[in-house]
Design a protein around this nucleic acid. Structure first.
Lengths: 240, 240
DNA sequence: CTCCGAGTGAGTGTATACAATAGAGACAAA
DNA sequence: TTTGTCTCTATTGTATACACTCACTCGGAG
């Protein structure tokens, strides 16, 4: 594995897991020392993270972990709904029936799976397999690229959500509807069901966010103290 | 201006103007020498172009200018239609009426503008102003980022199209309909009119492509034969 | 007390040397 | 003739020194 990949993976994980919350400032030398690498691979990792929108350049001071406000999450899902509905529509037309028929059988068993809290991970794995199957079946390079661009931000947003069993059961039902539509080749239904699912998913996240103290995401992780007096924690940082 | 920006701009222009056609292989040292720079900024430019999908890594041999086949153009427009229709829908709801009312007046005069071939550039400039106004009015960071990602590819595709006066007049009418819908705040019409416009625009490009000899874009510039069968899709980074 | 400007330092931007790697071709063996 | 391997070489990957830029600060003038 290349050193730049190591740096990229490490920094990306830190950001996605809120270890380095929005507002955290990164500098090349500092991170190079921490990761025991030279500046070059760190620099490359920074460039990748910046192009993904996870970091934002702060002229003369370094790079700051981008903000993820309530409004940003809404914008994120607005686009996600458009893209994934379209993806579902395409998949319903182009799918390999066998693959999705198997997934359908599994999703029918999902509620049983969710009865026991222990198997929650197994359900998440199933959803991941569905995503992977869709990725393959979409067959549009550009659409997939656009969807992939959203994923890191979605991972960050998901960590704000609290998945209770009720929500998971509902989600399982929504997924079932989507897969059924795909197997049936009903493109419009697949698109609409995806839209429904994602809107409910967004609502779940927003409910979690709103129920947090002081209406703020910042509660999850306190920004480093030496940045709080700057206007970094406010959402005014442009993202390229 | 930073050296890496110089390198990026130079290479990007070459690719967008088909000076370096699909299949052209770039190497860091070679380009560094040509541009009288060190490898570092060239390397950074390569990274940016790769993340935009204009270059594709060819392990051990360098980077190759990505392919732009007929099918790719269709995929490109499939996504463009989805994104820009959505953008138009949002703008119709969030627009600043004054700005678009002015644009409306200008588009009403567009046919007269197009009567003389000389003023074609002026019409292109008007379209550019419309795009810029929409960019501002959309108000969604993620949607705009996604649209911007398509632009370089669209520039490449556009150079395959032959804009005759008839097509331009029709396009002017389509634009007029879009702007009218935005001024009226009719979101659905704005979206649909955008979809219509882009589908006609795609058809125009495809007609141009198809009327070229030997099925292709390759006529413009012969791709090196040994890259066409390679798997040139962009590398996939796991979402972890 | 406020404002302006030069100094200072932290941080990025660039060049370049050296290391690692992966294709390409030659050559030998089956 | 084919196939496997070995070596060579072109190209990228990494480290590091040095140059430059800009934000922050401190001091002096108003």
């Amino acid at each position: 594995m290349r050193a730049s990949d190591t740096a990229y993976a490490a920094l990306r994980d830190d950001i996605l897991h809120w270890t380095t919350p929005p507002g955290t400032v990164f500098a090349e030398v500092e991170q190079a020392k921490r990761l025991s690498l030279s500046r070059t691979p760190v620099r490359e990792a920074f460039a990748r993270l910046t192009s993904e929108g996870l970091l934002v350049a702060l002229p003369g001071r370094g790079l700051v972990v981008s903000d993820l406000s309530r409004d940003t999450i809404i914008e994120l899902f607005e686009l996600r709904i458009v893209l994934e509905s379209e993806a579902a529509r395409l998949v319903a037309g182009r799918r390999d029936p066998k693959v999705f028929r198997e997934l359908l059988d599994e999703f029918r068993l999902a509620p049983a799976l969710l009865e026991r809290d222990d198997d929650r991970d197994e359900y998440y794995a199933l959803v991941t397999r569905l995503d992977a199957a869709m990725d393959v079946a979409v067959g549009s390079r550009f659409l997939m690229t656009a969807i992939r661009q959203l994923r890191p931000h979605l991972v960050r947003a998901r960590r704000l959500a609290r998945d209770n069993r009720k929500r998971l059961l509902a989600a399982a039902g929504e997924h079932l509807t989507i897969v059924e539509a795909i197997v049936d080749g009903d493109a419009q239904l697949a698109a609409d069901a995806t839209s429904v699912h994602l809107k409910k998913s967004l609502k779940n996240i927003l409910d979690s966010v709103d129920s947090m103290a002081t209406g703020a995401i910042a509660t999850i992780a306190e920004p480093a103290p030496d940045f709080t007096h700057k206007n970094l924690t406010t959402s005014t940082i442009p993202t390229s």
